[in-house]
């Protein structure tokens, strides 16, 4: 186990964390402003990936595909908000869970209807192929580094958007008192649609970027959606800062756990047994982390003001 191997795994963990942040930021924003739990957020991730794969295959340009993923996911999100989600704001969480669960079924089967069950593939763009040398002798894929940088830029942009712009001011006002901001003449319905579309675009972006690393297929959003839930529960629902820190924590702990635990377990038992045992413990690690954090802070690390 060399230093460069550890560094490589650490970067993989950060990359996973950045992806999770893009998902979790949308979820936590939507919950914070509208008080809505959206299970179908993973479907928007899938929409982004499919849009990118289809447009990239048709035009030959990954960058057009990436733009399409943002546009399509935002449009799908806005449509979803106007047709269904808008009716759910006043309802209890059970209704929201069920309605958005129904949306998952509709989106997944609808996509399978159009594209079939076979995965699509998306190539890494020419510009970002290749690798960057790491200190210690190995090399790290440039594309993964680009994802990390993109995620960092989005995090900065989102923070600036929320703390410095008029839209961000309205979003924060909507979080703290929606009746009052509506009474002051802000069109709250449009604001909600905008926030939903923004969250959707971030999910779509994440889907498109991951699509080039893995295959693009139906159901790809569900595992990452549940991880994103873990992230916002750890970070504190409604908090962007919590989402960022929670996402990095989950990404790094999950990746390092899968890498290190089989080796640690291997110190105590034979290597044939250590792999499966370590793997099984590693697969539960982030949930144990979540349980431990909740046992100490039931409202997450950075609870938003209720």
């Amino acid at each position: 186990m060399t230093f460069s191997l550890v560094l490589e795994q650490l970067l993989n963990g950060v990359q996973l964390g950045v992806m999770l942040f893009l998902m979790a930021a949308g979820l936590t924003l939507i919950f914070g402003v509208m008080g809505l739990i959206n299970l179908a957020h993973g479907s928007l991730y899938m929409v982004g990936a499919f849009a990118c794969a289809v447009v990239a295959a048709a035009t030959g340009s990954f960058w057009l595909g990436l733009a399409a993923s943002l546009a399509f996911a935002a449009a799908a999100g806005a449509l979803m908000e106007v047709v269904v989600i808008r009716r759910l704001y006043g309802r209890d969480h059970l209704d929201q869970v069920l309605a958005t669960f129904a949306l998952i079924l509709i989106f997944s089967e609808g996509t399978r209807w159009v594209f079939g069950s076979f995965p699509l593939y998306l190539d890494i763009p020419q510009l970002l192929q290749g690798a960057v040398p790491l200190p210690g002798g190995t090399a790290y894929p440039l594309y993964r580094l680009a994802i990390i940088v993109t995620g960092g830029l989005v995090a900065i942009g989102l923070t600036l958007l929320i703390s410095r712009t008029r839209l961000g001011m309205r979003i924060r006002a909507g979080e703290s008192d929606r009746e009052m901001i509506a009474a002051l003449g802000v069109d709250i319905r449009t604001l909600y649609t905008l926030v939903f579309a923004l969250g959707s675009a971030l999910a779509g972006l994440a889907g498109a970027m991951v699509g080039a690393l893995q295959s693009v297929q139906v159901g790809m959003g569900e595992p990452i959606l549940i991880l994103a839930f873990v992230v916002i529960v750890i970070g504190g629902i409604g908090s962007i800062k919590g989402a960022l820190i929670g996402a990095l924590l989950v990404g790094v702990v999950d990746t390092m756990g899968r890498f290190l635990l089989p080796q640690i377990v291997g110190l105590f038992m034979s290597s044939a047994q250590a792999g499966p045992v370590g793997g099984a413990i590693a697969s539960m690690l982030i949930y144990l982390l979540m349980a431990a954090i909740l046992a100490i802070k039931p409202r997450g690390l950075f609870p938003a003001q209720a």
Partner: peptide
């Protein structure tokens, strides 16, 4: 653990624990 929380937290935490059991079953050979 879950009942320390309520509302959306409770929904997500029960979901996460079920996923934990799920992944355990998948990776335990």
């Amino acid at each position: 653990i879950s009942l320390r929380t309520s509302g959306v937290y409770f929904i997500m935490i029960t979901l996460a624990f079920a996923q934990m059991v799920y992944y355990f079953a998948i990776s335990w050979p």
